[in-house]
Design a protein around this nucleic acid. Structure first.
Length: 483
RNA sequence: GGCCCGUUGGUCAAGUGGUUAAGACAUCGCCCUUUCAAGGCGGAGGCACGAGUUCAAUUCUCGUACGGGUCACCA
């Protein structure tokens, strides 16, 4: 076995990239990187019925967006290719033949109908399949195969004894061999099952750490028997606790977005998603910090810190993580994000992207919140007198009318419409009139926004809107209050 | 149901045979304040239960309960 740590991400192209899959990919990547090893990508497309067009592309896109670079894979090749299982069919039949020859597997001719019947009456002596074809006469078998009769290849499980293996996360696990079914290795269509292909490929590709979801824990003994039958070294197993929804059930559609690209479309940053799932079922023991970049995770990650219990995927925490990442984004990148979303909404209307980005930065949870938050800027909302009422600032429609009337000519006189002059002017007004800042600012802000709650205050809103629009809105507000 | 696995506040979690049992999210309060946020400070809230081992168990063992996984020609 190779001494260099090597892990693999082996998704099947059956749909979008689920958060659980991405978490597996992340841990596989981190285990490899943290030990200076290799990380490879393998496509497990042995189920032709569940194949989904475009799923492979989604896998590449996701890995790329998350920064999970692989060292070997279908797109970049490598020493152990091909990396797509449907291109390795001859290997599986070759290895299955060896198993049959050595007495570790056997052809089975049972029809699906017969299997269904067995499943119905639970009186069988064995677990699952009743081993009907396990000891057929070899000559008879050869004859039936020659005649073209369809068959599958099944693993011949030991009838007694027990199998023990050690998992990095779950420790030592032992099961009675009687509990193991003679599982199918090669399907009647000639394709291998996952149960067979994963063993052959992981060995051939020199995978040292088999990392996967804990749903595979119970079939791992069968894989161990397979490795033994071939005389292969058994790799280290790292089974990951499941990710579940807030109701304790397996994470699914009804819990919200569970696909990576779906979350991105919802306005979550890939970096935040990665950080979030890294901390689902794992935590560094030395530090209490929870914001880590992928590069930082690569150095601090250790399989030792992986928990055994299923973890709930909490959107609350994801939201917080996303806010943290938004705040840490380089200004120009954040500005571009805001601009891309705001431009089409403002359309021809001029506005200050810089001020908008600044104001939004501390207030946005996810990008998709933005349109609603800035709607009042692109649309003049109707005023109501109640809007101007604010108990704490001792403000109401009448007071607001006075303030705005005083303010209008002064604002109109402002030639340089920038933050410094605006706040200087407004501060001066407060001083001269003896009014509370909250009163003046509040009146102006509501006049500009026609909305009680806004991202940013009066001066910021005036800046975003620009001189012309701001003055027009102010004048409209006065007209409303006085009319 | 059989087999396997798990159980530290609502959630993610650190940790130990003797600790005031970290920290984060959420929640509540206060401060700050140009609304709302952000930020700062503080509060409430926990070792599932029962035995056993031990001078001492959250920590070790066994049961119970609860939860999850798995029992496919799917992965």
């Amino acid at each position: 076995m190779s001494t260099v740590t090597k892990t693999r991400f082996a998704p099947s192209p059956t749909g979008f990239m689920h958060i659980g899959n991405l978490r597996s990919a992340l841990y596989e990547y981190l285990i490899a990187r943290s030990e200076g090893g290799k990380f490879l990508l393998r496509i497990e497309d042995t189920d032709r019925e569940r194949y989904v067009e475009g799923a492979v592309e989604a896998i590449y896109r996701t890995l790329d967006m998350c920064g999970l670079r692989h060292d070997e894979g279908p797109d970049i090749g490598g020493p152990n290719g091909p990396y797509v299982q449907s291109e390795r069919l001859h290997l599986y039949t070759e290895y299955a033949d060896k198993l049959v020859a050595s007495g570790h597997a056997y052809p089975c001719f049972c029809s699906e109908e017969r299997l269904a019947v067995i499943r119905e009456n639970e009186e069988t002596e064995y677990i699952g399949y009743d081993r009907h074809c396990r000891d057929l006469d070899p000559a008879f078998v050869a004859q039936r195969i020659a005649s073209g009769e369809p068959y599958v290849v099944r693993q011949k499980m030991p009838l007694e004894g027990e199998t023990t293996f050690t998992d990095v996360v779950y420790g030592t696990i032992t099961v009675m061999n009687q509990e193991l079914e003679d599982q199918i290795l090669i399907k009647s269509d000639g394709y291998p099952t996952y149960n067979f292909a994963n063993v052959v490929d992981d060995h051939l590709m020199e995978i040292t750490h088999v990392v996967r979801g804990s749903e595979y824990l119970s079939s791992t003994p069968k894989y161990c028997i397979l490795y033994d039958a071939f005389g292969w070294d058994i790799p280290k197993f790292v089974h990951l606790p499941l990710i579940i929804g807030e109701d304790g059930k397996k994470l699914s559609k009804r819990h919200g977005s569970t696909g990576f690209e779906e979350l991105v479309a919802d306005g979550y940053l890939p970096e935040a998603i990665i950080n979030m799932i890294a901390f689902l079922g794992w935590a560094p023991s030395e530090e209490t910090r929870e914001i880590f970049s992928l590069a930082e995770l690569e150095t601090i990650f250790s399989a030792k810190g992986i928990n055994k219990a299923p973890a709930v995927f909490a959107y609350d925490k994801l939201n917080w993580m996303n806010e943290q990442y938004i705040r840490r984004l380089p200004s120009d990148r954040w500005r571009t994000m805001v601009k891309d979303i705001a431009d089409p909404l403002f359309n021809e209307q001029p506005y200050s992207v810089d001020m908008l980005a600044r104001v939004l930065r501390e207030r946005v949870t996810k990008l998709s919140d933005i349109p609603e938050m800035i709607h009042f800027l692109t649309e003049r909302l109707p005023y109501t007198r109640e809007l101007f009422y604010n108990k704490r600032a001792k403000l109401d429609a009448d007071v607001a009318s006075n303030i705005l009337n005083e303010l209008y000519p002064k604002l109109e006189a402002v030639t340089v419409w920038d933050e410094a002059s605006l706040s200087a002017l407004l501060g001066q007004v407060c001083e001269e009139t003896g009014r509370k800042k909250g009163q003046v600012m509040g009146a102006l802000r509501v006049a500009l926004a026609a909305q009680r709650v806004t991202p940013g205050g009066a001066t910021e809103t005036a800046m975003i809107l620009g001189r012309e629009e701001a003055l027009e809105r102010l004048s409209a507000a006065i007209k409303f209050l006085d009319g």
